[in-house]
Write a protein that binds this DNA or RNA. Structure first.
Lengths: 154, 154
DNA sequence: TCCAATTTGACTTTGATTGACTTTCATTTT
DNA sequence: AAAATGAAAGTCAATCAAAGTCAAATTGGA
């Protein structure tokens, strides 16, 4: 069994035991497992990405930590579906349509949709080369939807 | 729990109990908490800065004191002030501090802050050259705050 | 064999803690 | 009034305690 599989198993288990909300110490976990600390980073970036339904937050310095949250998919299949349907790129008008769709289905409030829209608008992307904008928009939109799903907004 | 977190909790509580106007004695508080006096200074300079909405005044010598005041502003003023304080660039940790500050002052809900944070996180900016990210973040953050101001959320 | 995924560790960055030393102010003494 | 004393708070650099980054080396599977 690969080291990365072992690390993954540990984190999964911690998530199961904490109702999808685990907090670990990188160095401690590395010691327990017997691997190099950066291995934890590798696993987190390769297998606990937003695309895979996880949110990872951390803090450095004394008393630092890494928090891993598993997104709950139950009530938000619509979001999940939309996220899955987004590829690498996303243009602004498709984005609008998706949000309108969510509003129609009562998956999101008008105001929250507005807020999201203001983050994916070309107005805010002036400093970004045009050919990058749709990639950026896709990434931001996915990231926001994931957060939104996980936060049980109304 | 970190010592600095304990100190922060104490001061926050003192502020809540005094309607945003607390007065402490550095050495006394340090003794109560069981830390070195300069720890209080560390906490004050790292978490109770004007940027974060606090004014700290003090006096040395016999009968000295430290006074901490939480600045009160209405939501739009807080937003406007933050928007004005942002220049062309904005790094992620400053962004976090600003949002935390808004949460502390009840200017924004935890979930709305999370949503905004997910749009200004480097995680979503992978496709953008590093040297552009802080410009982009500034633009998006401002845009979102403006939307937020006009929306009377939550 | 070749390529992508994995593994490793040296180095960087961030944040927290401490204590020795300095400055400021009020009170007491001369 | 001036000087001495003591009681605060302030400063700063050293040290410790995490997590992050990156690229070289290795491995394993198609």
């Amino acid at each position: 069994m690969r080291i990365s599989d072992i690390v993954t198993k540990y984190i999964m288990q911690a998530l199961d035991e904490s109702n999808g909300n685990a907090e670990i110490q990188r160095n401690e976990l590395a010691t327990v497992i017997g691997c190099v600390p950066s291995q934890i980073n590798y696993v987190l970036t390769s297998r606990f990405t937003p695309e895979q339904g996880y949110i990872v937050e951390s803090r450095r310095g004394g008393g630092g930590y890494i928090k891993i949250t598993r997104i709950k998919m139950d009530k938000n299949l619509v979001c999940a579906h939309i996220i899955n349907s987004i590829g690498e790129e996303l243009d602004n008008s498709t984005c609008k349509i998706m949000l309108q769709n969510m509003i129609d289905r009562k998956t999101i409030s008008y105001n929250a949709a507005k807020l999201i829209l203001s983050a994916v608008s070309d107005k805010a992307y002036a400093c970004v080369p045009i050919e990058l904008r749709d990639y950026l928009r896709a990434a931001i939109f996915k990231n926001m939807l994931l957060t939104y799903m996980n936060a049980s907004f109304y």
